[in-house]
């Protein structure tokens, strides 16, 4: 005789809600991945490639939607799982764009993958840039290096809803000209009504005819109306401090500047603690924070 009956977690009704990876939803398989196919690979630089990834199951694909600034956990079965920010347009429901640098074990293998390879995707996770709140304002999109990858999602959002925003400035800086990402799209962005694209490099080569210097140099030339401007800053942590402090000198309130933080992550759901900073989990409370919150996170940048 059994003294108590075993409990089957898969039978609990509230755990059987539709599989949607939003934090409000109770979900059953927290480690179930959407199976997805690499449909296209675009070589951006020597180190970075843009992957187009399509969820194979149509129902799952229809359910997958995200907001600019969110990330996914990309799984290579047998190799591992990595957090990657989505750099495509939220309105693109056909495939997900991920701009990935060859940096670690998993991404190095991914760079060897061919078109048609099957990968796994969990997500989207994290919060997003408050694009709704920014409507009616000038937008400063500032990217350094690989920061262009997460910045491209809000950039798409702004260009697709161009009439809702005032002037848009895109400031982009890298160390050398050959590190510039998405060079083939600059022409298109420049031609959009009232979008001001500025590019600067730290170390020019002989072919470079553009601006030279740090990204903060681009800010000096801008006509900034501090109380009618929102800024999104993506890039290496060291850049945040310089750019955001410079923006503060222009009088932009700290709650109008948003940055996207990077940390090691193993779950994306606030459980593994690898992205923990005190009481804040970058994966659920972030990765997007306004600059005031970042200053309150000790040793965040």
């Amino acid at each position: 005789m059994r003294l108590f009956t075993p409990y089957d977690v898969t039978k609990e009704s509230d755990m059987l809600m539709p599989l949607e990876f939003t934090r409000a939803n109770r979900l059953m398989h927290v480690d179930k991945t959407y199976k997805a196919e690499i449909t296209n690979i675009i070589r951006l630089t020597e180190m970075e490639k843009l992957f187009h990834i399509r969820i194979i199951n149509e129902e799952e694909r229809a359910r997958f939607s995200f907001l600019p600034g969110q990330f996914v956990m990309l799984e290579l079965p047998g190799y591992g799982e990595v957090p990657i920010s989505i750099s495509g347009s939220p309105s693109n429901r056909g495939y997900i764009e991920l701009c990935i640098r060859k940096a670690g074990i998993v991404t190095s293998i991914l760079h060897k993958a061919r078109r048609g390879a099957k990968v796994g995707i969990r997500g989207p996770f994290g919060n997003s840039f408050p694009m709704e709140k920014m409507k009616g304002n000038n937008i400063l999109l500032i990217a350094g290096g690989l920061g262009m990858a997460p910045l491209r999602a809000p950039l798409f959002y702004v260009t697709e809803n161009r009439s809702e925003y005032q002037d848009v400035h895109i400031l982009y800086g890298t160390r050398t000209p050959d590190q510039l990402l998405f060079t083939y799209q600059y022409d298109e962005w420049k031609r959009i009504d009232d979008i001001n694209l500025q590019i600067i490099v730290e170390k020019p080569d002989i072919t470079w005819s553009g601006k030279v210097g740090m990204i903060t140099k681009l800010l000096d030339e801008l006509p900034i109306k501090p109380l009618e401007t929102y800024a999104i800053v993506c890039g290496p942590p060291v850049m945040f401090k310089f750019v955001c402090n410079r923006l503060r000198q222009f009088g932009i309130p700290m709650h109008r500047m948003f940055v996207s933080l990077e940390r090691r992550m193993h779950c994306g759901m606030g459980k593994c603690c690898r992205c923990n900073i005190g009481s804040t989990f970058i994966c659920v409370d972030g990765p997007v924070f306004d600059y005031w919150s970042v200053l309150n996170l000790k040793e965040a940048i």
Binding site: Y7, V9, R23, L27, H29, V30, M269, G270, K271, V284
Partner: peptide
């Protein structure tokens, strides 16, 4: 109790007297 409840844990917890 929190968001993203973890079935691995819940299953073990509820099956433990």
């Amino acid at each position: 109790r929190d968001f993203y409840p973890n079935p691995y844990y819940i299953s073990r917890r509820k099956n433990t007297f």
